[in-house]
């Protein structure tokens, strides 16, 4: 049984599906990373993903254009982000709770619109897999890395980009200083509100695209509550990655690979109750984090509203 699990084809299968499964987590968690680095905890990712998934699906269904669908997901994500920013920045609302509110709103509204505008479950032709010439023919690496759809590649390209923006640009510096010490940033003439508006809206856009990556990338359907908890996992992965894009990448891959592994264990018939197999990625994520104790501190101003003195 175990030998079967260790065969080359199974290992390649696990890696390839891990790479694919990590996609929505990457988009959402990188968006959340920017928000948290600027001091905003957004627990509403799941709701943003669901609305993004719905609008991407619906617009694609109506117009036939995947690009318009993707755009719609980004726009609706931005709008949700805008609302979240207004509530948490201007009204200084408790971030965790308002996030739960936005989650419920997105969960309900996406389902409601789906029932009223689409009516029944339908499939669409989503982004097709792109086999990158030459590279996709490589043994092992080809099927693992170079036979995915466009949105998968873009997700991975986002990791170095996010690292660069956060660590090597002025906007990154502003984001980090607003998250660490908003008072000091403010006294240096940085607009805390503007920076947080930017990161929350960007987070919304990426969460919307994360939803699109599901509905018009990997699954080609929409159904109520189709994310079923992925948005919350994405938030958890930001903590796993200690607010760094590379760490988020590691967490997303680990979680997804273990998920792929447990599916394969069931397929090859490892005698383990399926419920316990499904538990594995959750347990392992905690265990891995336990043994690789991270000394990285959370952004000091995380989840704290900012108001100018006087």
């Amino acid at each position: 049984m175990l030998a079967k699990l260790l065969s080359a084809s199974v290992l390649i299968g696990i890696l390839a599906s891990g790479v694919r499964l990590a996609t929505p987590y990457l988009y959402a968690a990188i968006g959340e990373t920017f928000g948290q680095r600027s001091g905003v905890l957004n627990l509403g990712v799941e709701g943003q993903m669901l609305l993004g998934a719905f609008f991407a699906f619906y617009v694609t269904l109506v117009t036939g254009s995947l690009w318009l669908g993707l755009l719609a997901a980004a726009v609706v994500g931005a709008l949700m982000g805008l609302a979240m920013a207004f509530v948490t920045v201007n009204l200084q609302a408790e971030q965790g709770i308002s996030g739960i509110g936005f989650y419920l709103f997105g969960l309900g509204l996406s389902d409601l619109l789906f029932q009223k505008l689409v009516g029944t479950v339908k499939t669409i032709q989503g982004f097709p897999p792109i086999h990158i010439p030459v590279l996709s023919d490589l043994p092992v690496l080809g099927p693992v890395l170079f036979q995915h759809n466009l949105l998968v590649y873009v997700a991975y390209a986002l990791v170095p980009l996010a690292w660069f923006v956060l660590n090597k640009t002025t906007i990154g510096l502003k984001i980090r200083s607003v998250g660490e010490n908003p008072q000091a940033a403010d006294s240096l003439g940085i607009s805390v509100a503007a920076v947080r508006y930017y990161t929350i809206i960007q987070g919304g856009v990426l969460s919307g695209i994360a939803g699109a990556a599901l509905s018009i990338g990997l699954l080609n359907v929409f159904q109520q509550n189709m994310t079923s908890g992925m948005g919350f996992i994405a938030v958890a992965l930001v903590y796993f990655g200690a607010w760094r894009p590379l760490g988020v990448l590691g967490g997303s891959l680990l979680f997804s690979m273990v998920n792929a592994l447990q599916l394969w264990m069931q397929v090859v018939g490892v005698p383990i109750p399926p419920d316990l197999a499904v538990m594995m990625p959750y347990v392992l994520t905690i265990l891995v984090l336990m043994v690789t104790v991270s000394k990285v501190r959370a952004p000091s101003a995380l989840a704290k509203p900012f108001e100018r003195e006087g």
Partner: peptide, 10 residues
């Protein structure tokens, strides 16, 4: 109802 629940919270 779910959407309304969310609105009330926000």
């Amino acid at each position: 109802i779910t959407a309304l629940n969310g609105l009330v919270v926000v």
